[in-house]
Simulated scan of single mutants.
Amino acid sequence: MFLLLQTVDSSAAAANAPAKIKLFELLAEGGVIMIPLALMLVLAIAFFYERLLVIKKASHVDPNFMNIIKDHIVNGNIQAARSLTKNTDNAVARIIDKGIQRIGKPIESIEKSMENVGRLEMYKMERNLNIINVVAGMAPMFGFLGTIIGMVQMFYEINSEGKFELTTIAGGIYVKMITSATGLIIGLIAYVMYSYLNTQVDKAANKMEVASGEFLDVLQEPQR
């Protein structure tokens, strides 16, 4: 008898348990505003990986690169140094190559030419980063907009039909809040991506500055 009652209670509890909502079904409840939010997420991810590959390629420097360049310059083998920079595909090599081309001119002129190339390399790495930043700012705003539109629609329906039930209001509110939560999450993801890429660009800029300084020091060595 006890086992029968326990079985009945378990069945009743299972019947009264709240139904689990699948993630995609929950997101679909957000309405049409979820479409631009999804597009923003795809856009941010696509540009993140595209920029990451570009920055990694531009900032990768062989640890022995500058040592070899310095040896060639000190030994007067300018052509070998130029050949090495031409066959190396990164930002540092392109900056050093410009410096090698200007050897024989005043040090200020060489430094300025290298700075110009450095600025161009920075632009190449930072290009399209603002798109990710825009997504980080716009996604939460779109999410809030979706929630506001949904709330206006819900209260309009309540006012039109004259039905004011707590369950209806609570259900409508949690559905409309989906867009806000989604927008905030997408904005956070985009912000993390943007910050990470900016950090990588800063590291690349530091490598370029160090290499430029070493190269200029080598050129001024005989004058010491």
Score class of each variant (00 low, 15 high):
residue 184 L to D: 07
residue 96 I to R: 02
residue 88 T to D: 08
residue 183 G to S: 07
residue 159 N to L: 02
residue 161 E to P: 01
residue 167 T to H: 08
residue 184 L to Y: 04
residue 191 Y to S: 11
residue 174 Y to S: 13
residue 100 I to D: 01
residue 183 G to N: 01
residue 189 I to V: 15
residue 172 G to Y: 06
residue 137 G to I: 06
residue 104 G to C: 10
residue 170 A to F: 03
residue 160 S to Q: 12
residue 67 N to W: 04
residue 187 G to P: 09
residue 94 R to K: 15
residue 160 S to R: 14
residue 129 L to F: 11
residue 140 P to S: 00
residue 89 D to K: 14
residue 111 E to S: 14
residue 174 Y to C: 09
residue 92 V to E: 00
residue 92 V to W: 08
residue 187 G to E: 08
residue 127 R to W: 03
residue 128 N to C: 01
residue 101 Q to R: 12
residue 99 G to R: 00
residue 138 M to A: 15
residue 65 F to V: 04
residue 155 F to K: 01
residue 77 N to T: 10
residue 151 M to Q: 08
residue 184 L to S: 05
residue 78 I to K: 07
residue 198 N to L: 14
residue 70 K to D: 03
residue 118 G to Y: 06
residue 121 E to V: 01
residue 87 N to S: 15
residue 139 A to L: 00
residue 199 T to S: 15
residue 142 F to P: 05
residue 166 L to E: 09
residue 79 Q to M: 05
residue 124 K to S: 10
residue 171 G to P: 02
residue 178 I to H: 06
residue 199 T to A: 11
residue 104 G to Y: 12
residue 140 P to I: 01
residue 132 I to L: 12
residue 192 V to S: 11
residue 186 I to K: 03
residue 79 Q to C: 00
residue 172 G to T: 05
residue 98 K to S: 14
residue 131 I to Q: 06
residue 193 M to F: 15
residue 99 G to I: 02
residue 146 G to K: 02
residue 180 S to N: 00
residue 149 I to G: 04
residue 117 V to F: 01
residue 80 A to R: 11
residue 152 V to N: 03
residue 111 E to M: 07
residue 109 S to Y: 11
residue 80 A to S: 15
residue 69 I to P: 03
residue 98 K to R: 15
residue 72 H to S: 09
residue 108 E to A: 12
residue 111 E to Q: 12
residue 84 L to H: 00
residue 144 F to S: 02
residue 79 Q to I: 03
residue 165 E to H: 09
residue 88 T to K: 09
residue 125 M to G: 10
residue 194 Y to S: 15
residue 118 G to N: 00
residue 137 G to L: 03
residue 129 L to V: 02
residue 99 G to W: 01
residue 83 S to D: 14
residue 149 I to F: 10
residue 65 F to C: 01
residue 70 K to Y: 00
residue 165 E to F: 07
residue 96 I to F: 05
residue 129 L to K: 09
residue 75 N to Y: 02
residue 71 D to R: 12
residue 182 T to N: 08
residue 103 I to C: 06
residue 159 N to Q: 11
residue 135 V to C: 08
residue 73 I to Q: 02
residue 167 T to M: 08
residue 164 F to R: 03
residue 68 I to Y: 07
residue 180 S to L: 00
residue 180 S to P: 05
residue 144 F to T: 01
residue 78 I to Y: 03
residue 185 I to T: 11
residue 90 N to G: 11
residue 175 V to C: 02
residue 124 K to Q: 13
residue 113 S to Q: 07
residue 195 S to N: 14
